[in-house]
Design a protein around this nucleic acid. Structure first.
Lengths: 155, 155
DNA sequence: TACTTTCCCATTGACGCCCATAAAAACCCA
DNA sequence: TGGGTTTTTATGGGCGTCAATGGGAAAGTA
């Protein structure tokens, strides 16, 4: 199974283009090799991105939320109405729409951070802070990454 | 079951390459013979490493968490975005990314320390100190290696 | 026309692939 | 068991390819 892994910082050029990291490009399916989907992260000043296929999974999960809950409605509105299908150029670059750039405070560069089945685009500095905060929350819960990564048995 | 055992000190060459010890290479599965995973040790100035397979188990676990929960987000950020998938060349060498080299104070050589299901990469001197400290802690805790090695049923 | 987006080409540096060598380890056979 | 031979390892270096980036020109859009 292919996953979006690791972190890469790339530049936004004068035309607004930015390269999707090579290892992320390789994850896109052959049918939709040049297509990705972007949308505003609900919780963060960041952009979520994924392959076209992933949208189906997300929609299923939202469907599984209680149909009468406010959450369900909020999520589907936030996500689906603001989805931006985006295509890569021959070199693997794409253009981040202005409203998304604004949402994530992007100017000259952006950090791509792998999240397994999807990825996020952050202002590089915010990305570092986010990673640090996540680590510390996990530590505070007395869980160690190593134990998660290494131990065969889950507890 | 094959385990990462023993300690080896290898050189980092001018291109930044270092050989994964042969005995460690033999532990990697045939499917992913040329792929390992590196990540920052949380507790030490060292790098943790393991075979690529673990990723699959880990990602399944994370994927099964509630997609909107904070845990899910923390785990996927800390793990997926900070993991460094790395491939070995034909000779069994790989490149340690700069930010990891910095974290472990590595320059011209590095010590590989077997830890059973995973391994660590240390600055050779720090590795010695670490091993010494570990032995002394065990002594202080009045545990003997023999007791651990002899008794079958310890948990 | 003015502006935006895509296509194409060029550059640079990083990395992968290949071959070479010396030392160590494994092997073999008397 | 010892000594010689073969194989494996760790290491070094050349070179071609690819990724990230930049910019000009063409094509599309308003």
């Amino acid at each position: 199974m292919k996953l979006f892994l690791s972190t890469y910082v790339n530049k936004i050029d004068s035309k607004g283009r930015i390269s999707l990291p090579s290892s992320f490009r390789n994850i896109l399916s052959k049918e939709n090799k040049k297509e990705i989907i972007l949308f505003k992260s609900i919780k963060f000043a960041a952009i979520d991105g994924c392959s076209y296929e992933r949208i189906n999974t997300i929609s299923e999960r939202i469907d599984n939320l209680d149909i009468f809950s406010e959450d369900q409605d909020d999520f589907s509105t936030s996500i689906f109405s603001e989805i931006v299908p985006t295509s890569l150029d021959k070199e693997g670059r794409f253009i981040i729409p202005n409203f998304l750039k604004k949402h994530a405070n992007l100017k000259n560069e952006a950090a791509f951070i792998g999240q397994g089945n999807y990825f996020q685009i952050w202002h590089p500095k915010s990305a570092l802070e986010k990673q640090k905060a996540s680590r510390e929350r996990i530590k505070a819960n007395k869980k160690t990454l190593t134990s998660i990564l290494i131990n065969k048995s889950n507890d």
